[in-house]
């Protein structure tokens, strides 16, 4: 019943109205409403234009569905601004500028801030740590003199 133009138009309006919601929640909401419409049409036993219009009218305007959905969530502005906190900014600054001006120490202190943050997931923290430790290990080993012997070296 997805090919019903009225239903597609309604779901399109719902998706447009749901832009403030998180992408995952938006997809979920459209799916839920689609299932609801399908169930109502199956229950009605027909999918003619009048029945579809009745079902959609009973659901109400897409904007109202989104408004009701948004009431249970944080406002979108606060969610957007909450992606970056002081800890995340300090971590990124230490990893970039800190790596240039405070070699070795800067990135490692930056990693401490990364692990202190609650906005990055555990896999993201692990990957970032692996990148820093992996790439810093090479110069540390070079400075410590571990590596292939230089050609013409009389050592040993």
């Amino acid at each position: 019943m997805d090919d019903e133009p009225l239903v597609r138009d309604y779901l399109g309006r719902l998706e447009s109205a749901a832009w403030p919601l998180a992408a995952a929640r938006r997809t979920e909401l459209v799916g839920e409403v689609r299932e609801h419409i399908d169930a109502a049409l199956t229950e009605a036993g027909r999918a003619d234009e009048v029945t579809v219009r009745n079902v959609l009218e009973r659901l109400g305007p897409p904007e109202e569905i989104v408004a009701a959905e948004s009431e249970g969530e944080a406002p979108p502005q606060s969610r957007t601004s909450s992606s970056w906190g002081a800890i995340e900014i300090i971590a990124v600054l230490l990893l970039t500028v800190g790596a240039v001006f405070i070699p070795f120490v800067g990135p490692f202190v930056g990693l401490v801030f990364v692990w202190a943050s609650t906005r990055w997931t555990l896999p993201e923290k692990l990957i970032a740590s692996a990148i820093v430790i992996g790439l810093l290990l090479l110069p540390i080993l070079a400075i410590l003199g571990v590596g292939p012997p230089q050609p013409g070296c009389a050592c040993g």
Binding site: T96, G110, I127, G134, L136
Partner: peptide, 30 residues
């Protein structure tokens, strides 16, 4: 290892990790 490579790798480590973390946060916001 050449000094120039060492000097390049030190900031690269932090910058690569920072780029990864920034992309992770930006992607989640969408």
């Amino acid at each position: 290892m050449d000094v120039a490579i060492v000097a390049f790798l030190i900031p690269l480590a932090g910058i690569a990790a920072a780029i990864f973390l920034v992309i992770a946060l930006v992607r989640r916001r969408r």
